[in-house]
């Protein structure tokens, strides 16, 4: 950083702070010119330095043990990182997450619209659905769907209480992967519906009225006017849910679906290299989560159009990154772009 920052750092010198109370008589007040010429000295915050130092020491210890503890077996981690069955598990985790989120959100939007409708039956049913699904742990739901065959040995398609067109044995239909898909989708739908409902409620009613007064149809009002304005409220929670679901898919390992975690488990059950293989899975989860977080940033920026925060003058991704990691970013040429956190570090003096 340039000169203002260095001057702030030199002000850290441990000289005693000037007395805060002004006990000089009134007639000895300084001239305005003196006050205008006086240099501003920021308040010293020794606590910030102590806490920062303590954290840096802990961080160094953590990195040190990662590198020096031979039992992490980083060479084994490296050799299994792109192992065939690990990559297959990774692919399954990815598409299961994508399929569950996409289907779950479609359902969730429907449930949210039902919950906001004027029809009391639709409202109650959607409320009941959300209540039930949120009340049962996803792992239990998954097991129920996996064991559906023992509850309903056969499933058939037909007129309610009447003629049947097609029939299938449940055990054939509900493999582990379908059970995983259905169970997780319902879970996402329940949570997504609440997220979407909150977003819709955050849009002023005047927007709908203005669109109605223009003669726009109900579906178009929802799609073009309400939903885009609900998005800024929906996206952060959705990013949270998506990242949560990416990791929550690891519970499918209990019904023998070979996702990223279960693939690692299958390997370490044979060679007992438990920690390195768990690290392989962990590293992949970290990489995927990082990519999703970056994606979320760009989607949020897209939907901030027209808002005070958005527009062309908004913060770029790297500016945001440097703002949040000032230790690495603030030394860059353009410290001012580091945002609030960067300035806070400079103020740590």
């Amino acid at each position: 950083m340039s000169s203002p920052d260095t001057s702030a750092r030199t002000a850290v010198a441990p000289e005693p702070p000037p007395p805060v109370t002004d006990d000089r008589p009134l007639h000895q007040r300084p001239e305005d010119g003196q006050l205008l010429a006086a240099k501003l000295v920021p308040l010293r915050r020794p606590g910030q330095w102590i806490s920062a130092l303590a954290l840096l020491v802990l961080l160094a210890m953590f990195v040190h043990t990662l590198l020096t503890n031979k039992r992490f077996q980083w060479d084994v981690v490296g050799s299994y990182f792109l192992n065939g069955s690990i990559v297959n598990g990774l692919v399954l985790t990815l598409w299961l997450t994508a399929a569950v989120m996409a289907t779950g959100y479609l359902l969730g939007i429907g449930v949210a619209v039902m919950r906001l409708s004027g029809n009391p039956v639709l409202r109650s049913v959607s409320f009941g659905f959300v209540w039930l699904v949120r009340s049962v742990p996803p792992l239990v739901q998954l097991l129920f769907w996996y064991e559906l065959a023992s509850l309903y040995p056969q499933l058939s398609l037909g007129i309610p209480f009447g003629h049947e067109f097609a029939m299938v044995r449940t055990a054939h239909l509900f493999s582990g992967i379908l059970a995983a898909f259905v169970g997780l989708t319902l879970d996402v739908a329940a949570f997504a519906s609440e997220i979407v409902r909150g977003g819709i409620l955050s849009v002023e009613h005047g927007q709908t009225e203005a669109a109605e007064a223009l003669g726009l149809g109900r579906a178009r009002i929802f799609r073009r006017i309400v939903l885009p304005q609900a998005m800024p409220a929906i996206i952060p929670a959705t990013g949270n849910l998506l990242i949560g679901m990416l990791k929550a898919t690891s519970i499918v390992s209990v019904i023998a679906v070979q996702d990223l975690l279960y693939s690692s488990q299958l390997i370490y059950n044979q060679n007992y290299l438990i920690i390195p293989l768990l690290l392989v899975a962990t590293l992949w989860y970290i990489i995927l989560t990082t990519l999703l977080s970056i994606g979320q940033f760009f989607v949020e920026r897209h939907y901030a159009r027209g808002s005070r925060r958005g527009g062309s003058g908004g913060t770029g991704f790297w500016q945001l990154f440097r703002g949040n990691i000032p230790l690495f970013g603030a030394s860059g040429a353009n410290g001012a772009a580091g945002g609030r956190s960067g300035r806070e570090l400079a103020g740590l003096s």
């Binding site: 005047g206 009225e209 203005a210 007064a213 885009p228 939907y303 027209g306 808002s307």
Partner: peptide, 13 residues
């Protein structure tokens, strides 16, 4: 029938 509102109600996005 066109309508103009007190709070304008333009679509901000």
């Amino acid at each position: 029938v066109g309508m103009v509102f007190q709070q304008f109600n333009l679509f901000p996005h």
